[in-house]
């Protein structure tokens, strides 16, 4: 049966950089409940705290391995890199450092893969790369992913995480908001499904462009989602923000997103949505 399949998700084995996502050492303290957790345990639990369900941030490689069918991912535009359009002081050094610490060329990884046999074009953002801010490279990768989805008539799934537009690229970064939003219209015109999944954090110019334009918008529990970051709002209005403000659950209550989905149910939920939009999963038809 279709649903039985969802219970045993398979995961790709990807070389994970666990040290960078969870502080060094064998043990880590959960930032939400304070529980001391064994690193290997959290990794086995999709990097979710067993006690309080806190969702640790993921690297792009982890996200892909938790989401896609084993070995199905083929990366596109892996060598697309930002230049320094404004000659902004210190930016090349910042890029070099981000590349070295993450092993990525940019803040977004894109390509093709499958979820329970459903072929998709997928983009994932990695918050370790200059807070996954959007410059020309991220904008270009997103638009190319859209173009590929249209050409191959595949659905597009984007895991968003971003602090916003990349300041060091100035207006070149800001116009990426318009460029990516305009590209979403190509999917609309082609009648193709676009699912955006908002993860911690989704703010600023990315939140105010392609992130909020999914036909279906999902979010991970507790993810910070908003236009202006909470610290800036607090400083501006000089009052404390209500509990849970700008968290995924808050956005669902306010009608801004479709559904908060725990990481453990994400693959299943995405597969259901894809199938309801006409994907004929090989796995399902074979079972």
């Amino acid at each position: 049966m279709v649903l039985d399949l969802f219970k045993k998700p398979k995961y790709v084995t990807v070389h994970r950089d666990e040290k960078k996502e969870i502080p060094e050492g064998l043990w880590v303290k959960c930032p939400q409940c304070g529980e001391i957790l064994y690193n290997k345990d959290i990794a086995k639990n999709l990097k979710v705290c067993r006690k309080c369900e806190y969702h640790f941030r993921l690297s792009a490689a982890e996200r892909l391995s938790f989401t896609l069918d084993d070995g199905s991912f083929v990366e596109d535009d892996a060598n697309l890199v930002a230049d320094n359009p404004l000659d902004f002081p210190g930016y090349p050094e910042k890029l070099t450092e981000a590349r070295q610490t993450t092993g990525l060329s940019e803040a977004m990884v894109s390509g093709e893969g499958s979820i329970l046999g459903c072929r998709i074009v997928i983009c994932v953002m990695d918050p370790r790369f200059i807070m996954a801010s959007m410059g020309a490279a991220v904008g270009e990768k997103f638009v190319r992913a859209v173009e590929k989805a249209v050409e191959r008539r595949l659905p597009l799934v984007v895991f968003v995480a971003s602090g916003g537009a990349r300041m060091q690229e100035g207006m070149v970064a800001l116009v990426q908001m318009a460029k990516t939003a305009a590209a979403v219209k190509l999917l609309d015109d082609a009648g193709l499904l676009y699912v955006s999944v908002l993860t911690d954090p989704t703010t600023g110019g990315v939140s105010a462009s392609f992130a909020m334009l999914g036909d279906i918008i999902l979010a991970e529990p507790g993810a910070l989602i908003g236009f202006t970051g909470p610290r800036v709002i607090e400083q501006t209005i000089r009052q404390k923000l209500p509990d849970g403000f700008q968290r995924a659950e808050f956005l669902q209550q306010h009608g801004m997103i479709d559904l908060v989905v725990p990481r453990s149910r994400m693959r299943e939920t995405l597969a259901r949505i894809l199938m309801l939009h006409g994907c004929e999963s090989e796995n399902v038809s074979n079972s």
Binding site: M177, A178, A181, A182, V184, K185, S207, A208, S209, F210, A211, M212, L213, I225, G226, F227, M256
Partner: peptide
């Protein structure tokens, strides 16, 4: 965010 994104599109 939603309002800005919609206007852009």
């Amino acid at each position: 965010s939603q309002a800005i994104a919609q206007n852009l599109l």
